[in-house]
């Protein structure tokens, strides 16, 4: 697996050779710095930690300052661990990783935090169909959840019953998104289709091989 931390910028569309309109998301990906290398001997697993996006010294606490000073870089906003980079991309402490680890046309996964939807009913949250009809005397049950269980047995509502509640704001991974274009001089990746989260939110781009 190899990957990068990025920032969702926004959506646009490009045209392919056949003139087909391809909706795509622009992601500012990297450059990321390796701030820590996890090894089997020391940590029990192999991974590297990447850092992305500058932040002010003032907003950084002492522990973090020390962590970044070790790598010899300015404080960063996001840290993420990537388990074992591919052998061709063996990285060491302090290395800078750029978008050139990806190629145009290959398939990647994108992890992000979905947009928060607030407290939502079952129709929106769990794709329920609502109860009954809208007409024929039917009254105020249009988006209701219906029955949530039987009566004397079991005399309780089962755990995990799909009900209304907070929706969105979850970690969401989309797999097999195609890279439409890479603009390496500006560290930009154009990914086919939508990506979880609002514009400006952080995403993790990863590739499993």
């Amino acid at each position: 697996m190899s990957g990068l931390i990025g920032k969702k910028i926004g959506m646009t569309s490009v045209y392919d050779a056949d003139g087909k309109n391809i909706p795509c998301t622009v992601i500012l990906a990297g450059p990321c710095v390796v701030t820590q290398v996890r090894s089997k001997e020391k940590d029990g697993y192999e991974a590297i930690q990447l850092a992305f996006d500058d932040k002010k010294e003032k907003q950084t606490n002492k522990a973090e300052r020390g962590h970044f000073a070790k790598a010899g870089i300015s404080p960063k906003k996001v840290l993420a661990e990537f388990s074992r980079f591919e052998s061709g991309h063996q990285k060491t402490f302090g290395d800078i990783i750029k978008v050139d680890i990806f190629e145009e046309g290959e398939y990647i996964d994108v992890v992000g935090t979905s947009k928060g939807k607030g407290f939502q009913g079952v129709v929106k949250r769990h794709n329920f169909a609502g109860v009954g009809q809208a007409t024929h005397g039917q009254h105020n049950r249009l988006r209701a959840p219906g029955s949530i269980g039987a009566s004397s047995w079991p005399s309780r509502v089962f755990k995990g019953m799909k009900m209304a509640g907070r929706m969105g704001g979850n970690r969401v991974k989309l797999v097999n998104l195609q890279i439409v274009k890479i603009i390496s001089e500006k560290n930009l990746v154009l990914v086919k289709g939508a990506v979880p989260g609002s514009n400006g939110s952080y995403v993790i781009i990863e590739r499993w091989k």
Binding site: G10, T12, V14, Y15, V26, K181, L188
Partner: peptide, 17 residues
């Protein structure tokens, strides 16, 4: 570059005018 500038850069350079 902020978000708007990046979008403009992409639209100016990737999409044919």
């Amino acid at each position: 570059m902020n978000k708007a500038e990046i979008m403009k850069y992409v639209e100016d350079n990737v999409i044919e005018k």
